[in-house]
């Protein structure tokens, strides 16, 4: 049985999207491979002169790069960052994030819709980071989003699925892949999100702040796969009283 994640017509076997921030370049390859990630996010920043090390040299060649628009405070800035990223010739995937709030790093949903519309029209596979709101998710789909990426809790907080019920609404109502992004702190939380029916989970900080980073990447990969299988299998029902698992007839005394 093939169970692929399809984003903008591109199929993926892994449902673990890995953020590449906060850990050293030397372990990037091991982290990607341990987690089995096929999509890795990157940021765009000023280059320095004089042969500095390049993260692209450390990412396995079969991985799809997903540049983000971090640093953008408006739709216009996000569009510019996306177009600059595309000039580097690493594909046309873009994770739109437009953030004005510096304390909670919540996305500006309205600017995100504007940027999504412009970039989708411009041929990008647009994956917007968003605050989980059904109306906004519908507008993002209308604007051409290939997936939507609702936050679980604030970026980098490791607080887990604070927005669980609202993400579940998106799972039930939105036709494009739902990818939980931001705030997932433990593999069990990633697994819970997958059991609920989200299509993929993205995380960065939870892996990068672990004591053994490659091992934590492996744990996330396994948890995400496990949660997906549980979702496909269909979770067992819940009762308010006991129901014996062993047969209630044929006791030795009978």
């Amino acid at each position: 049985m093939t169970d692929q994640l399809v984003i903008g017509g591109h199929p993926f076997n892994s449902r673990f999207i890995l953020g590449s921030g906060k850990f050293s370049l030397e372990i990037v390859k091991a982290v990607v491979e341990n987690g089995g990630a096929e999509i890795v996010t990157l940021a765009l920043r000023r280059a320095n002169q004089g042969g500095e090390e390049n993260i692209l040299d450390y990412i396995p060649p079969n991985v799809t790069l997903l540049p983000n628009t971090s640093g953008a405070r408006t739709a216009e800035e996000a569009v510019k960052i996306a177009r600059l990223a595309r000039e580097i010739n690493c594909g046309n995937f873009i994770k739109v994030e437009v953030i004005k709030d510096s304390k909670y790093l919540f996305p500006d949903n309205y600017e995100t819709i504007k940027a999504t519309e412009i970039l989708a029209r411009d041929g990008f596979v647009v994956m917007p980071y968003m605050y989980p709101d059904l109306n906004v998710a519908r507008d993002l789909v209308s604007a051409g989003a290939a997936a939507v990426m609702p936050l679980a809790s604030p970026i980098g907080s490791n607080k887990g699925l604070s927005t669980r019920d609202f993400i579940e609404i998106l799972v039930n109502e939105i036709p494009v892949p739902i990818i939980v992004d931001a705030g997932i702190g433990r593999p069990s939380q990633a697994c819970e999100a997958m059991e609920m029916g989200v299509d993929a989970v993205m995380c960065n900080t939870a892996v990068a702040t672990a004591k053994n980073i490659p091992l934590m990447a492996r744990a996330f990969g396994q948890a995400i796969e496990s949660g997906r299988n549980a979702y496909l299998a269909g979770l067992g029902r819940v009762l308010n009283q006991a129901e014996a698992s062993s047969p209630l007839t044929g006791f030795l005394e009978d």
């Binding site: 921030g21 000023r46 993260i55």
Partner: peptide, 10 residues
């Protein structure tokens, strides 16, 4: 000029 490149990011 603004000269940019990819770095690690989430």
């Amino acid at each position: 000029l603004e000269v940019v490149r990819f770095v690690g990011g989430g």
